[in-house]
């Protein structure tokens, strides 16, 4: 069993209005040193696969087809093998 920890975030070229709203709220809280905020999504996926490579291959496809919209988002992930339970 493998655990994939996946982050999906907007590409730098995309305006993220939620990130801007959160940054403004931080400024209202007097954290005036905050320069920029990007909001993203975090997923944990546990999956069966024959190897770590095979698991990463599946996660790539899952990200490309479902979890991220390649038009405006990018993703990165980390896959690790879970100890047998």
């Amino acid at each position: 069993m493998f655990l994939a920890q996946i982050h999906v975030t907007y590409k730098p070229s995309i305006l993220d209005p939620q990130g801007v709203a959160i940054k403004n709220a931080m400024h209202r809280l007097s954290f005036n040193g905050v320069d920029a905020v990007t909001q993203g999504k975090y997923f944990e996926v546990t999956l069966n696969a024959d190897s770590k490579d095979a698991a990463e291959e599946q996660i790539d496809t899952i990200c490309d087809t479902l979890l991220a919209n390649p038009n405006m988002e990018t993703y990165r992930y980390d896959v690790k093998e879970l100890a047998n339970q």
């Binding site: 995309i14 305006l15 209005p17 939620q18 709203a21 919209n69 038009n71 405006m72």
Partner: peptide, 10 residues
């Protein structure tokens, strides 16, 4: 083509 994002005024 393209996509729909959050309105800029949220």
């Amino acid at each position: 083509p393209g996509s729909l994002q959050h309105n800029t005024n949220m």
